[in-house]
């Protein structure tokens, strides 16, 4: 310990002093370890609690969504867009060459095999987190017929890929699976 340096000590006590210093250092180290251990519960309490984690997956019934319609479901307190694509929307999406895309992905990569008409994406604009328009009847779907974010004008196409505006990425596809032809489990 620094404060003991002032202490004059005779040379014969050298060994004893080292041993004593060791005890002081050990005591202070233990105090330090204790302080770090105390910080653990104080910090982990901020992580999502068990009830929040329990809501991390939801089942959505999609049987009532007609082709051309979309709904917003709530997953982890965030909107998920579930759209039943019309054949012409699928065709429009497939007609776009990948080279024109900012974040190149095909529609097939963004849907599940056998359910290619179901486009399920997060309803969170990849620019700054606003919710794009386009799920409700008569809402502005933007120049590319998909979704349109009113905050800063990002426009998404019928496969919810970014085409214009400041957003860097396509609307994110969450993890999901079809548990039956009419029920999707998200998360």
């Amino acid at each position: 310990m620094a404060t003991l340096q002032d202490t004059p000590h005779d040379a014969t006590a050298e060994d004893g002093v080292r041993r004593r210093d060791f005890i002081n250092v050990a005591a202070i180290s233990f105090a330090g370890v204790g302080a770090v251990a105390v910080a653990v519960p104080l910090l982990t309490q901020m992580a999502p609690s068990a009830d929040v984690l329990a809501l991390a997956s939801i089942d959505v019934d999609i049987s009532k969504i007609q082709p051309g319609q979309a709904i917003k479901a709530s997953w982890r307190k965030q909107p998920v867009f579930i759209r039943n694509l019309m054949p012409k929307e699928i065709a429009a999406a497939n007609a776009v060459p990948l080279s024109e895309l900012r974040d190149p992905q095909t529609l097939a990569e963004r849907t599940k095999p056998g359910h290619s008409n179901w486009l399920i994406t997060m309803g969170v604009c990849t620019h700054l987190g606003c919710i794009p328009l386009g799920t409700g009847e008569g809402e502005n779907r933007g120049p590319f017929g998909g979704y349109f974010c009113p905050c800063h004008g990002s426009a998404y196409d019928t496969a919810a890929r970014i085409r214009k505006g400041p957003a860097p990425k396509n609307l994110q596809v969450p993890q999901y699976e079809f548990t039956s032809p009419t029920v999707v489990k998200i998360g």
Binding site: D6, I23, A26, F30, G34
Partner: peptide
């Protein structure tokens, strides 16, 4: 258990520092 060890160390450290009391 941790506190027990830490307290024993604190006690030894305390004894050991106070042994210097006179000289300081």
């Amino acid at each position: 258990l941790f506190l027990l060890v830490a307290t024993v160390l604190a006690y030894l450290s305390y004894k050991n520092i106070w042994a210097e009391a006179k000289r300081v």
